[in-house]
Simulated assay, not measured.
Amino acid sequence: MANPYAGEVAVWLDGKRHVAKLTLGALAELEEALAAGSLIELVERFEAGRFTTRDVLALLLAGLRGGGWGGEPRDLLSVEVGGGPVEAARVAAELLARAFTVPGGSG
């Protein structure tokens, strides 16, 4: 099971469970990949439901790398995410939430 206290989220790729988490390095990579003005803008897009598929893929990639995955960006284009696009978006949103909150805490 993924450890929410460590910011971890489980994601299934081609039937194999992986742990994803947004480390500081992963967050920096994410900012660069999305060319977002700030991570707050990305969070606001998710909160408003205005995120793109590119946002979801970038979050998954950053989270998987933060969790130790050795794949390349192109690898995500051909894998089957368990639960499909809806689950991929949920995992991406959960990664953001866990990166900036403490489970059971006030923030």
Rank of each mutant, 00 (worst) to 15 (best):
A28P: 03
Y5K: 12
G63N: 06
L42K: 12
S78Y: 01
L76Q: 04
L96D: 11
V56Y: 03
L95S: 08
P4E: 15
A33S: 10
G15Y: 06
V11D: 07
L39Y: 05
G67M: 00
F100W: 13
E31Y: 04
R17P: 15
V81Q: 02
A93I: 04
G107N: 13
A36I: 10
L60F: 05
K21T: 07
P85L: 14
G49H: 03
T101E: 14
L30I: 04
V102W: 15
T53F: 15
R45G: 07
A35F: 11
A92Y: 03
R74Q: 02
G49E: 14
A93Q: 07
G82C: 00
G71R: 01
A48R: 07
F100T: 10
G70R: 14
E80Y: 01
M1Y: 08
A2Y: 11
V56M: 00
T23L: 00
L13C: 01
L64F: 04
G66R: 13
A10F: 00
L24C: 12
P4Q: 12
E94H: 14
F51T: 08
G68P: 05
G49D: 11
L60M: 09
S106K: 14
L59Q: 12
A20V: 08
S38V: 05
T101C: 03
G70Y: 01
A48D: 03
W69K: 06
D14R: 03
T53H: 12
E29S: 06
A92C: 13
L61F: 13
A10D: 05
G66L: 09
G37S: 09
A97D: 12
A99L: 05
T53L: 14
A6N: 11
L27S: 01
G82S: 01
G66M: 03
L24K: 11
L39S: 04
G71E: 08
G37P: 02
T52A: 15
V19C: 14
P85M: 14
E32G: 00
E41I: 12
D14Q: 09
G63P: 12
S106I: 15
I40C: 00
R98I: 10
N3L: 04
T101I: 02
N3K: 05
G71H: 05
K16G: 14
L60R: 02
A92M: 03
G7R: 07
G84W: 14
I40F: 04
T23H: 10
R74F: 12
R90N: 00
V81D: 02
L30N: 03
G107L: 02
V11T: 04
G82F: 00
A62H: 08
G49R: 05
W12V: 03
E72G: 02
E41Q: 12
L57K: 10
L95D: 08
G67A: 01
S78F: 00
A93H: 05
P4C: 01
I40W: 09
E31A: 11
P4W: 09
L59H: 03
E29M: 02
G83D: 07
T101L: 05
V79K: 01
T52Q: 11
E8F: 09
A35N: 13
R74G: 00
E29G: 00
L22H: 07
G67C: 01
R90T: 10
G84E: 15
N3G: 13
T23F: 12
G15V: 12
G83H: 07
G104H: 15
A26L: 02
A35M: 11
L76E: 02
V79G: 00
L22K: 06
R90E: 09
W12S: 06
L27G: 09
G66F: 01
A88I: 09
F51E: 14
T53G: 10
